[in-house]
């Protein structure tokens, strides 16, 4: 009896080790997706500017997915960090007058990430107090304060005219930001991929699992010793830094920052992207961003003014009819395939 339990236990442990490794394993489609994304730069060089926008949007959405999908914080003002990152990188590049060291793009990203992490950390304490509704209001309020600041401090931000002359130096001192945006796209995509891999690592780490636990049941999470608020502070800070890098990429690759980076629309758009792609899936951010841009291209090309209407309609339909977003549908489809074609 005792012996049997012991051997069972040993094989159980082996199974469990495999189980954990399997959960975090890189899968074929993932690798294909990233290779494909890089291939796009060479297959359709003329659309590189568009791809660049998608990559930036995907990173921005990824940052919200960390906050919303993993930490469960509903934010109406996530655009604040995107805008802050854009201004941080823009101002640094401007200070360096387009030459290294200050205008170095990598340094710009780092600077934006640090500024946003610091501001995100401080505001996380405000955001984490209270219910969902209070969080909505605080995040929206903070975003509006940022917008006001950027608007009123025209001497620093350029106000409504935008921040001009923020062209960064060459990437790693070697690659120029070309006119067609191919290097810009490769640059943004690389940053996206690196940060994605890092996010993926975090999601499968004890820290990431504890975030999902908090989102699932914060009462139980506290009872097993998870410092709920501290973990959420961490997640919010991380999300802010990621959003800041996305904003910085936009500033660097377009060499321009306008008040538009802080617009409410950005916060709403990115929410749509994450929900459309699938909350708490990471890849939903990438898929959602691509779908969003594609949709924008088609619908806004037809009726540029009424894009907003279609956007609203998609939001409404999404809530009423689709649960789990694209990744949810794909996951269900994949599970069906396995059941039909796979083992008994």
């Amino acid at each position: 009896m005792t012996d049997a339990t012991a051997t069972d236990s040993r094989s159980g442990t082996d199974r469990a080790m495999i189980y954990f490794a399997e959960r975090a394993r890189w899968r074929g489609p993932e690798v294909a997706l990233w290779i494909g994304a890089f291939a796009l730069a060479f297959l359709f060089p003329s659309r590189a500017l568009l791809f660049n926008e998608v990559a930036i949007l995907a990173l921005f959405a990824l940052s919200l997915d960390l906050v919303l999908g993993y930490a469960g914080i509903v934010s109406l003002g996530h655009g604040a960090f995107f805008g802050l990152g854009a201004y941080a990188a823009g101002l640094l590049a401007k200070a360096g007058a387009g030459a290294a060291p200050l205008s170095d793009p990598t340094l710009g990203l780092l600077f934006a990430a640090l500024v946003c992490a610091a501001v995100g950390y401080v505001t996380s304490f405000l955001v984490l107090r209270g219910s969902d509704l209070t969080r909505l209001m605080v995040t929206l309020g903070v975003a509006l304060i940022f917008q006001e600041i950027a608007n009123r401090m025209a001497w620093l931000t350029g106000g409504a005219d935008g921040l001009q002359g923020v062209a960064p130096a060459n990437i790693l001192g070697m690659f120029e930001f070309d006119l067609y945006g191919r290097n810009a796209y490769l640059y943004s995509l690389t940053v996206l991929m690196v940060l994605f891999v890092f996010a993926r690592k975090i999601v499968h780490s004890p820290f990431g699992i504890s975030l999902r636990a908090i989102k699932g049941n914060s009462l139980r999470a506290g009872a097993i010793g998870i410092p709920v608020n501290r973990r959420l502070n961490g997640a919010y800070t991380l999300g802010a830094a990621y959003a800041g890098v996305a904003g910085a990429l936009l500033a660097q690759t377009t060499a321009f920052v306008s008040l538009d980076v802080l617009d409410f629309h950005r916060s709403a758009d990115v929410m749509l992207i994450v929900v459309f792609g699938g909350v708490g899936t990471l890849y939903g951010a990438v898929v959602g961003a691509a779908a969003f841009k594609a949709m924008y291209d088609v619908l806004a090309a037809a009726t540029p003014q009424y894009w907003e209407f279609w956007l609203g309609l998609v939001l409404v339909l999404l809530v009423l009819f689709v649960r789990g977003g694209v990744m949810g549908l794909l996951g269900a489809f994949y599970a069906r395939l396995q059941r039909v074609g796979g083992r008994p």
Partner: peptide, 20 residues
């Protein structure tokens, strides 16, 4: 709450575009 927020923002956008 997330769904409520998305839904009512969606309605708002639709109303705004319609009026426009």
């Amino acid at each position: 709450h997330l769904e409520q927020v998305l839904f009512t923002i969606g309605l708002t956008f639709m109303a705004m575009a319609t009026v426009d």
